[in-house]
Design a protein around this nucleic acid. Structure first.
Lengths: 335, 335
DNA sequence: CTGAAAGCGCTTACAG
DNA sequence: CTGAAAGCGCTTACAG
């Protein structure tokens, strides 16, 4: 493999001049630049990123700390990983996967080993132990998720409160006065699932404002239970025929339960939902819904992290990605 | 951050001696080793991986080249990525995500930039253009997937032929004489989906041997079409009431179509399937099935790649992971 | 505008 | 068994 020295020799200049055109930090006369570029092309030279990292003490790599939460249903992880990698690449960064089961240890090791310039924490909940080593060390990082206390760390996430507002408004605007609120299992709220909590609070508040009565129906984990729970709820005459869904597993299963029971949307039932776009790709989901926009969240997170690396002492930010309502006429108009 | 020099000073030895205990390559007397280890602990020293990489010309990082194929249905990508990262870590390697849409360019850049010691190509099909720069350069790599022509590159994958054999045998053993063969869309076979082809060939051969008549039913992409196709097939009186399924989308949708039509397994219908375990986690899939074993495939791939890095000129290998039959009594016994 | 020199933090023959 | 020196391939003040 050619080195910067080979290029310099080939072009008849010094290594520093080659470096200048490589980094673009100094002006080089067009003629020498051309000679150097020709030499680079001829030798198929490409900078050794490790050596550059050592010299600049910038690895141009971000670590993504993946985390699993059993109570969740998340076929969207791959989408996030790819979106993060894509966004990072556009900013000149590579992405390293950190999957150690002990997330806190993963963070410590990543910081100590200086393999990365910054960390992206996926799926952050309230009280997430991974925040500790970060806020202690001040290492550049960004949270995907929005805990109550971000410990002074930048964070990006979908605006779940706004999403709830959009969906409640949509139902209220169509004249609905009550709705079943199909939610996550109770454990998720208790274990710090802030997106669930943010959605719920905003939904309740807005529903109160708009005169929409909400009947909560928690849906447990696991395909069988999801199906059974939904089936029971839809058969219960005491529950409203309008659904506000915030639970991906329930959203995915719903069409099939409707099929089981012979119910039509919006004829027999009105449905609005918040779920990942990935989910809609895999299943038949034709509900008016708020998209979760993983690409936008990923891009925001990467942009914030780049900013953080550039200016480590800037004040911490929270960035909420605006949700979008996708209308798919699954809501009947009531008078 | 402490450097090796700081540790050396603290322990009162030279940097090379510290390096010796770090790499474990040379014998160091227990006393000095103890002093050095104490210094490391005290200073919270941790080796700078980039500097080590430059000195050893080993980055201890593998690149994973992700690739999308629209005709597929793959909520299992995340499972593979995590499994690869976990396996790599156990072998002392980190994993970098390479998601450039142009996979061939991604490979070229990775090789040129020397950011990684080896490449893992996910989801390799026949004639995959990513193989080209690899076989040209001889850069260490391993394919996940098994093209007809591996171009001299190591490859690991599930043994789809053996899987087909297991499933066909299971049906034949239970006395079945004919089965619907629920397959992937035709495009997938044509575009080089070798796992599909390997499964199909073996299924046809074994079925012929066992006197099982196979009626092929290709299932197109997209939830709506999957559902419609399955529904039509299950209503067609000319088609057998026994299903051999190799199509994750169809496997996922099947339980719901059965629900639609009021069919029971194994009473009305016998079903065997090959699908990813991830799928079973997300859906209600209670069919006798062959697991796709992503963790085992990932571990094999990583192990092969480590071997390849250690000995670049060893003969290329193909490793087929043995499938396992999970019996879930979805097959009726016929006489 | 270009180049010589020092340095980034390691490892690895090579002496001793 | 330990250490001094050179080198991995870059970048970056600093001279000129």
């Amino acid at each position: 493999m050619a080195t910067i020295g080979d290029v310099a020799r080939e072009a008849g200049v010094s290594r520093s001049t080659v470096s200048s055109v490589l980094t673009g930090r100094k002006f080089v006369t067009p003629e020498t630049r051309a000679r150097i570029e020709a030499a680079i092309a001829k030798l198929e030279y490409s900078v050794n990123t490790g050596a550059r990292a050592l010299a600049t003490s910038r690895t141009m790599t971000f670590g993504v700390v993946v985390r699993f939460h059993e109570a969740e249903f998340s076929p969207a992880l791959a989408t996030y990983l790819v979106a993060l990698s894509d966004a990072a690449r556009e900013h000149g960064y590579s992405v390293m996967l950190l999957t150690e089961p002990d997330g806190e240890a993963a963070v410590r090791r990543a910081i100590a080993g200086r393999q990365v310039d910054g960390l992206i924490l996926l799926n952050v909940l309230d009280g997430d132990p991974r925040l500790d080593p970060i806020s202690r060390s001040g290492f550049p990082a960004v949270l995907v998720g929005m805990p109550e206390d971000t410990r002074g760390i930048d964070a990006a996430d979908l605006d779940f409160a706004a999403a709830a507002g959009l969906l409640v408004d949509h139902l209220a605007d169509a004249g609905h006065r009550e709705a079943m609120f199909v939610r996550w299992p109770e454990e998720l709220y208790e274990s710090g699932g802030t997106y669930a909590t943010r959605f719920e609070r905003a939904a309740l508040r807005r529903a109160a404002e708009r005169g929409l009565r909400l009947a909560p129906v928690p849906v447990p984990v696991g395909p069988e239970q999801v199906r059974a729970t939904l089936r029971a709820a839809l058969r219960d005459p005491a529950l409203p025929r309008t659904l506000l869904v915030h639970n991906d597993a329930a959203a995915a299963m719903l069409p099939f339960v409707l099929g089981d029971l012979g119910l039509e949307v919006p004829g027999d039932l009105s449905v609005v939902s918040l779920h990942s776009a990935e989910l809609a790709r895999l299943y038949v989901l034709s509900f008016t819904a708020v998209e979760s926009r993983p690409e936008a969240v990923a891009e925001a997170a990467v942009a914030m992290l780049c900013g953080r690396v550039a200016d480590p002492r800037a004040p911490a930010q929270r960035r909420l990605i605006e949700p979008r309502l996708e209308r798919r006429s699954s809501v009947a108009t009531r008078s």
